[in-house]
Amino acid sequence: MVRMICLLAFAATMLQAYPEFQKFSQTHSGRTVNCGMCHASPEGPDGLSFGQVGSLDSVQMELLKDARRAQQPGMDVNNPVLNPFGNKLVRVMGVRLLVDAKKDPAMLHFYLKDAGDMDGDGVTDAQEFLDGTNPDNRYHGDPLALFLTNVQHHLFEIVMIFMATGAGMFGLSNLLMAFAAGGEGKKRSNSV
């Protein structure tokens, strides 16, 4: 227990909270956003659950310390209390810039502008931050943007399914007409 308290106290000095980004994303998008946008746990870094500081072993604590030291952009980090998007932020911006950006959270969009699309859903990470959607889930994003991107991406499949459905309907219609004609013919021959 004492060890746990010491660990938490130590970790608290290692951590910095960034609720400004969450608040900005939520206000800008009108969608609910929680700590899970950047953190491994949706409840944030403090606590004893998986992905929170209290659950880390000594190796993970070292990774946390390394990440904290990444003041400049471009350093490879693997902070266990952050998710891939959170780690990407540290990699792209560095801790110093990230702390500065807290004063104007909209700047995060600017810094991420050329940082790509980590989930490959066609909506950039910068845009997902503005939209309040999950940058690390290819099935989550602004519905219209996802729709337009996926239509372009799956154009061949869409054309094929259109042709297959059309051909199926054509065949079925002709089959039913043939049944109907057969039935009529039988009726006529019976009446004769």
Binding site: R31, T32, G132, H140, L146, E157, T165
Partner: peptide, 21 residues
Amino acid sequence: FIMFILALTLPFDAFFSFPLM
């Protein structure tokens, strides 16, 4: 055809905020 296109291009979960998922 419409259902298939929607299923292929528009994830249903995208309409919810991600913490709900």
